[in-house]
Structures are given as C-alpha cells and as structure tokens.
Write a protein that binds this DNA or RNA. Structure first.
Lengths: 252, 252
DNA sequence: CGACCGCTTGATCATAATCAAATTTTGTGG
DNA sequence: CCACAAAATTTGATTATGATCAAGCGGTCG
C-alpha cells in the first residue's frame, strides 16, 4: 500500500538535505501542495528554497511547540499529526496530515510554533523556509495568493472541526473523520474505501474530543451494523452511503 | 439592499459620511488592525483602498454564506458574530469580533464565504477589498507579512476553541470566554471587569457547544459563588482570579 | 519470556441535553 | 407611551450520552 507513495526520484535524493532541481516539478503530489499555483520558471525559484528532508521515523518530531517558527512543511510521504499541550499537561491533537498536505502554519501569527508535529509512520517531509516564501510571495503574486489559500484552508478545516465538536455525537464525529480520510486518500490516488489508519485510537479520540473507550465502542457498533470493517489499523468502508447518512451528509 | 454597504458604491465612497481620508492613520484601533505593520506612506496606500462603511444596525449582515468573497473587514465600532449553517439547518457560531478586530478571512481558500457575518449591535465596519490587498501585499512586504499574521491568528484562535470544546467542561468554557472578552475589552481601553455582552445566551451556548439552559445554569452558579455578577447583558467580573482558576489558567 | 502498550468490553456514574413551564425582556403597533 | 405579542432567559425534572473505573486480551519489543 505504501509503495504507492514511492518517490519519483531514487533514494539518493531522499538523503539530500538541500533543494533538488526537478523535485517539485516532477512531484506527483504537486497539485495538492504549493506548486500548482506557479508557472514553470516560478517553480524553479520555489525549488531553490525547498528542503527535501530524508525519511524520518515514526515518532520523530518535525518541530515542537514553542520552537521558533521557520518553515512550513509538506508531507511527501507518510503522515503526520500535530498536537499541543494544554496547561494541565494533556495533549490535544489538532490535525492529521497525509501525503500532499501542508502543515505547520500555526506559528505564522506569533513566530513560535503553537503545536508540535510528529510523524505517525515513516515519512518524508519537505521544508519550505517561510521567510524565503514571503520574499518569493512579493515577487510571484500567484504564490502569495496560494499561501493565503493554504492558510485559509486551514481556517476552513478548523471551523468544520469546531462545528463537529460542537454539534455532533460520537458516531457522527467518527463517521465524518472517516469520510474525510477517505476523500483525502482518493485525492492522492489511494483506495477510498480501504484505508490504513496511521493514527492510534487514542489519537482519534483525542482529535474528536472523545475517550479511547468511546471510539472503540463506536467502531464496534459500526462494524456490527456492517458499515465498516475494522481490523487493527485497517479500515474498510463497506457502506459509504450509510457512513454519509450517519454524518447527516455533512461536508466535513 | 442596505444590509450591505460599501461595495454598492465604488470609489466615491472613500471620502464618505465621515469624510475623513485620514481614517486609518488617525484610527484609535489601528494598532489592533492592519496599519500597525505599515510605514506612513504605506498607510496612505492602504487607505486609498479601504471602504469605511456607514453605521449598520443590529441584525444587519455584512456578508452571507455562499456569497463571493471580495473583502475582509475590520470592526471600527460595535461587534459582529460569524456563523455558518450546518447541513441539517442549525446555526454554528464561529466567532465574535469586537472593535479593532478583523474578520471575513473564511472565504480566502475557496473564494466563497463559508460563514455569514452579522452585527450584534449598531456597528461600523471597514471593508478592505482582498484583491487590492493582495496587490498591495506584493508591493509592501510588511503588509503581506501582516496579512499572513492575521490569517495565522485566526488559525491559532480556532485551535484554542477546538481544544476548549474538546477538553473542557461547561464551566471552564464559559470562564474562558469571559476571560477572553475581558482581555479584548481591556485591549481597546474598555473596563476589563465590566462588560456589556453584545451576544445572546443562545449565541454563547452555540459558540461554546452548549445549550442555552446550560449556559444559564452556569451563569447562575458563578453568580452564586460571587465570581461574577450578571444582569441581563451586563457582566461584572467580581473575582478575576477565581475565573482564571476555573479555566485551569488556560491561555484561551 | 515477560512487561508494557494499545485496544476492547463491561458496569457504573456524571455532565449536560432534553422536555417543560414560569418569568423577564424586547419589539411593535396603536 | 402603553399594551400586547414574541422572544429570550431562567429554573426544575428527567433522561441520555459519553466519561470514568475496572478488567482482560493480544501483540510487540526489549
């Protein structure tokens, strides 16, 4: 399954820490990432500032809360979660990011990361220094526009999550998350109804404002109703319509 | 038709009702709004694109969900709430905005407003056409940076609300909201412990993911404990420390 | 191998939702 | 400005959802 994420470039590029000409322009995920907004010559400018990181292991951090905000990041391969620490020491998961998705925009406001980002599985991450991106943004209007869009997307996503947490039951929240993951898998060419969940039950519950026990019970319930089949990390959506019905056809 | 403003009249509206071209540079709220990032000559450029609206009445909309996204807005006077309609026809309040605060950035991603914005009391709103702002952003780096910050702030705020909804009890949510309002009042030179709430109980509950009844009960409880005194719209914070204690000293 | 971790399931409890009704405030037309 | 209707708020009684407490299972990794 993850072989579908295989890099379009040989492994030696993965271990190259600095910009690789050709990487963004040939990246299969470009349409989800930043370069979509750019013309060929502008992509070259962008590439000159992008750092393609070597693979990082499950549990490795990309950045930590309270660190200086320097870059935003794109998931090239794998998946990442972001989370923050509440004042009473509990963790709050604030987002899951899959291949092609951009994260790390918290910190734009204050210059300090408000969350930590950690790989949920072996992943490869592109880092894009934000200062350089700002400089480029003033030179390339379509890049500036795309940056605004990325930030705007994050806002839209967050507001949907707020609505979900504020208005929906445990079952509805789970169903909405699964539909979201399904769509996002589809968008990068993976099966929309056969998903390997990179996150733990506890992460899911945390993200959705539920306890692990509740998550587990909801999953069992959905399985009994033959809406999904779930075996450890492997989620199969058996009845997409039923899942949509559970969410009240929300657009989360 | 007069629920909308500014944009029905194009350029001549600039030297309008309050007839003051020097508006941004003399605005008491500038430090909270956009101009703080700018040099004098840049403020003039900004002012040339800002539309200062005439006062709007309670209940008037600034924009509605699904309308084309054209401008972002700053509250000059009064207060505004934003909300969206869930697919099952319920309202979800997504934000309260007071004088000096900027709203309307939902819509940056899709070009369509994802929320509606309505005045909670008689208000005056400045509209700033986003396209012009983008153009200026490429000319004035500090403006671009400030735009990023505004969007980033919205993200940070939303993530705090997510955490609040996900982790905190009814009492904690109310206390956190009151502290936030208190700080924001203070920031614009109003009393931090004597606040006129522009929003209804129902709006508060909606925003915090609680029913009206729960909000009412929490208020009664806090009043009995002499942490606050609340008389209709008039909130007095009697014991700021107790309020902070209720929130577990969260930084919401 | 064994301790630990993640997950599941069961029993009980607590918080906030829901249902219901009284009361206050607000808005409107005369 | 008043009277009345409508809307908002408060309070109470009951219920339901999900949290908490508890226990057991299965896999993993040192």
């Amino acid at each position: 399954m993850n072989s579908k994420f295989a890099s379009d470039k040989p492994a030696d590029n993965l271990s190259c820490h600095h910009g690789n000409r050709g990487s963004c322009s040939t990246c299969r995920l470009a349409e989800l990432c930043i370069p979509i907004a750019l013309k060929i010559e502008d992509i070259n400018k962008l590439e000159s500032i992008v750092h393609r990181g070597r693979p990082i292991k499950k549990g490795d951090h990309i950045y930590r809360e309270d660190e200086e905000f320097k870059s935003i990041y794109a998931v090239r391969l794998g998946s990442v979660k972001t989370y923050l620490m509440t004042n009473d020491g509990r963790e709050q998961v604030t987002g899951f990011y899959m291949a092609g998705e951009v994260f790390g925009m918290d910190g734009v406001a204050s210059g300090i990361h408000e969350t930590s980002a950690v790989a949920m599985e072996t992943s490869a991450i592109c880092a894009i220094p934000f200062e350089r991106l700002e400089e480029l943004g003033t030179l390339i209007p379509s890049l500036q526009r795309h940056m605004f869009k990325l930030l705007g997307q994050e806002i839209t996503e967050d507001q949907k999550l707020i609505t979900l947490l504020s208005k929906n039951s445990a079952d509805e929240r789970l169903a909405a998350l699964f539909l979201s993951l399904s769509q996002r898998c589809k968008a990068i060419g993976l099966s929309p109804d056969n998903i390997i969940l990179p996150m733990s039950r506890s992460d899911i519950g945390n993200y959705l404002g539920l306890t692990v026990e509740t998550v587990s019970r909801v999953l069992s319930r959905m399985q009994k109703k033959e809406v999904i089949r779930i075996d450890n990390k492997e989620l199969s959506i058996l009845d997409m319509d039923a899942l949509r019905a559970i969410t009240n056809y929300s657009d989360y």
